[in-house]
Amino acid sequence: MNTENTTQPVIEARQLDLTFQTNDGPIHALKDVNLSVGKGEFVSFIGPSGCGKTTFLRCIAALETPTGGSLTVNGMTPDEARRNRAYGYVFQAAGLYPWRTIAKNIKLPLEIMGYSSAEQDERVKKVLELVDLEGFEGKFPWQLSGGMQQRASIARALAFDADILLMDEPFGALDEIVRDHLNEQLLALWARTEKTIGFVTHSIPEAVYLSTKIVVMSPRPGRITDVIDSPLPKERPLDIRDTPEFIEVAHRVREGLRAGHGDDV
């Protein structure tokens, strides 16, 4: 189904291992993680807390350094990829600067990367339209709702030309209705921009609805228990969640999560 997979993978992990040294002894956060993500894929990482899904995303972003195995991003080491500004990162909290307007917040990475001011204006306009926030450029973050703030932070991650978008539970703090709406918008955005997306979540419906590939993880040590290539079509209205295919994938994810927990409880 995925013809892109024949080309070089965008993210590739082999036997990836990460152990944190803490005062209470070493913590095995990731163990033998093998994963290959092709260009334009939407990959969700799902699992209970402590399963290493966020840690894995942070490894891809070079915010953590693995202690073993290999990891490449765009064929480079994660740190080289970071220096080349290969990805945009969206955190669980919007993290907008309260002293900057929405437009100025989106310009932050552009200023740091040295874009001209005309180019900055043009890009702000483009990404605000992508996340459906036209007309809010002059507002300060506190004047926006939580969902709008998170959209602004996605716009900020899209403003420069990274072809990978890493999202760490970006909608985790939002209510169900806002989350549904943002999920729909995110799919539209993904279809338009053709970016590769890595998405951490602990919601099964969210993972199944969004992804072309679902990575089920389990804790102690953090590892991958199942990788599901979604049979769902690329075009996904919200009511696809009532179809048998959707329910079947969701069931498999739930089984994977249960299996991961089995040797633990």
Binding site: L63, R82, R85, Y89, F91, I112
Partner: peptide
């Protein structure tokens, strides 16, 4: 971390 992802 955000600034680090921008390589600031």
């Amino acid at each position: 971390d955000l600034l680090r992802t921008y390589n600031a």
